[in-house]
Design a protein around this nucleic acid. Sequence first.
DNA 1: ATAGGGTTAG
Length: 512
Amino acid sequence: MIGGYLRNERYPEALEMYEAMRSHSLRTDSCTCTFELKACTSLSDFETGMEIIDEARRLFDEMPPKDVVCWNSMIGGYVGACDFDKAFDLFFKMWGCGIRPSPITMASLIQACGGIGNLELGKCIHGCVNGLGMGCDILFNTSLVDMYGYVQNGLYFELFDLFFRLVSSGGGFDSVTMVSLLQGCAQIACLFTGKVLHGCVLRRGLESNLIVLTAIVDLYVKCGSLKLATSVFSRMQERNVISWTAMLVGLAQNGHAEDALRLFRQMQEEGVALNSVTLVSLIHACAQLGSLKKGKSVQAHLIRCGFVFNAVNITSLVDMYAKCGKVESAKRVFDNGSTSKDIVLWNSMITGYGIHGYGRQAVGLYDRMIKEGLKPNQTTFISLLSACSHSGRLEEAKALIKQMPFEPGNAVLEALLSGCRTHKNINMGICTADRLLSLDVMNPGIYIVLSNIYAEGRRWNEVDYVRGLMRKRGLRKTPGYSLIEVGNQVHAFFAGDNSHPFWSLLSCGDYW
DNA sequence: ATAGGGTTAG
């Protein structure tokens, strides 16, 4: 019964049942306790989880004849609670008792290796498993795939190599293995490997699995191949919020925000309810389009539906209002959620102040943030610096960089550099550009700003020199543009491009 | 009876 509740993710009921069982003085075994542990960890009730695992261990020690399932439950319990040392201790004890481990035992250990990030140990265990003759076990191999996925840091090659060796030696995989692989492939955005994996899905007959297909859509999106993503998505027999959202994000993030909004309407017509992730990507699409109207209408729609806003949603709204030029509205939205200790939310408001040059307010919010015990990160400083450099507080900016608890990254220095340009501080500008070029020699933006700084100081020889460097290194300037909403349309104005029909209106003064 | 999965802001 308890197991049934767990399978249906009804954790509170499972816990209640467990309590009832104990109050009737029924004997609970280590498996029941592990069930309970699972319920606790799923409920993020960490303390109860720890109590229960200790209790599980006590019962486990009292049980005289223990089969492999009991050992696995207990080891798995420890791994689930991130108590990896105890998991390994118990494994050695089990070995000492002469119990032959099963693939599940080994899978739990591999999971533990991923958890502590010890790949070498993982490889050791992989070797043992081959020795035990379980090298082709689907269950075990899935955990391996997971471990290589977990450890990340450029181990994708090993991961795919492992997988393809597995397939060619006749070893199996299932939908869960495949989803892990697709995810790993999406992270490195390797279209070629993606297509091969897609082929494996078809050959394996997994092409009607909703989760696998959603992962494929996301993979093609991350590889920038909207054509393939769309073709998979449009052929899906079954779709849910997550698959719709994956496609929507794909459109929005590849510069097709209008299409994303169109897809959203289609989703509503088909009666699929949106969730908070859908919302964030929608608002993001509106912000990209610079369309305040669409953003506001999405917000209004949600308020009507009684949608509960969380820190992430509020962040996206703050971001959208700020990008559309409405700092006051951004602040109002922010105030509604400012009891949250979410650093990203606070950063978004500081960024909002920054892009509009409200240096004083940005610094004020930063002070308040420190007072409330929040820890600033790189993004915080980037936003602060851009706020300071827009409003002429260069020395303050420089002091901020000095007191940063970490080395300034490219973005921090870029913000300072653009401030130097705005305020014509040639010497600080040259120093900053030098430092930046030593970090990122192929960034055209740095050369552009540096040559502008020289030009403003009328140092033409240096201007020529910098431009020559750019040419020699094959770097080109990327055009800047801004978005303006007029009526129901958003127009893009590129720097140095006066061809847009609205320029004539601008110069006639009809519109503004 | 014991493991594992897909989408989001800066």
